[in-house]
């Protein structure tokens, strides 16, 4: 039992990472990674939403009719996202970040990770493992988000969390801030991950 629980938590972070292995939830992971601060807020929001909606859907799993389950799931997820959005809007320091993330907070609803975990795990498991599974998948997503944002902010503006880190003589590389570079960076992260773990390579 303990071994299974450990697998539930560790697997999504490394071997079955939602972004690099399952290729889910790419949309938001690229758009919000220009700055580390926004990426961190986004990561925490996604962790909260995946965990809570997996938990709620797992509680409801025996009462949802199969035919309309997608609508029910989307409504549960949308409710969680509205909660997160309202909390971010209410916070003193987080309001500006919420503005900066604009539609991407709303788009957590259609983040495939959330729906994917509900479909694949929460509908067939008890609430507590589902909660852990959701949190762990959110964390696997957040990890990649933070890595990409760290590299982009460091190379693109020479700062981290808005503080100057590289010497002032560093000329910021504007290419890194542009959207397409996020894709190339993510491609390289996948490359590194699969070179390290050969079992993930595609034929």
């Amino acid at each position: 039992m303990a071994q299974k629980l450990k697998d539930t938590i560790l697997n999504p972070i490394l071997k079955g990472n939602p972004i690099t292995v399952l290729v889910l939830g790419i949309c938001s992971s690229l758009a919000v990674t220009v700055q580390l601060k926004g990426a961190l807020v986004m990561a925490l929001s996604v962790i909260a939403v995946t965990g809570l909606s997996s938990f709620v859907c797992s509680l409801l799993r025996n009462t949802i009719p199969n035919r309309v389950r997608i609508i029910v799931q989307l409504v549960v997820v949308a409710m969680m996202v509205i909660l997160v959005d309202q909390i971010l809007k209410a916070g003193e320091g987080t309001y500006a970040i919420d503005k900066q993330l604009s539609v991407y907070i709303g788009l957590i609803i259609t983040n495939c990770i959330v729906m994917g975990r509900i479909e694949a795990f929460a509908l067939g498991n008890k609430p507590i493992p589902s909660l852990l599974d959701g949190l762990a998948n959110g964390a696997g997503y957040g990890l990649i988000l933070v890595i990409v944002a760290f590299l982009r902010e460091l190379l693109g503006s020479g700062t981290l969390f808005g503080f100057q880190v590289l010497p002032a003589s560093y000329v910021p590389n504007n290419l890194v801030i542009l959207p397409p570079f996020a894709l190339i960076l993510l491609g390289c992260i996948i490359w590194a991950h699969r070179a390290y773990d050969k079992s993930l390579q595609e034929k």
Partner: peptide, 13 residues
């Protein structure tokens, strides 16, 4: 290691 998903990302970039 770059086959499949990896190269697709770079192509889209």
């Amino acid at each position: 290691p770059l086959k499949g998903t990896g190269i697709a990302f770079i192509t889209v970039g």
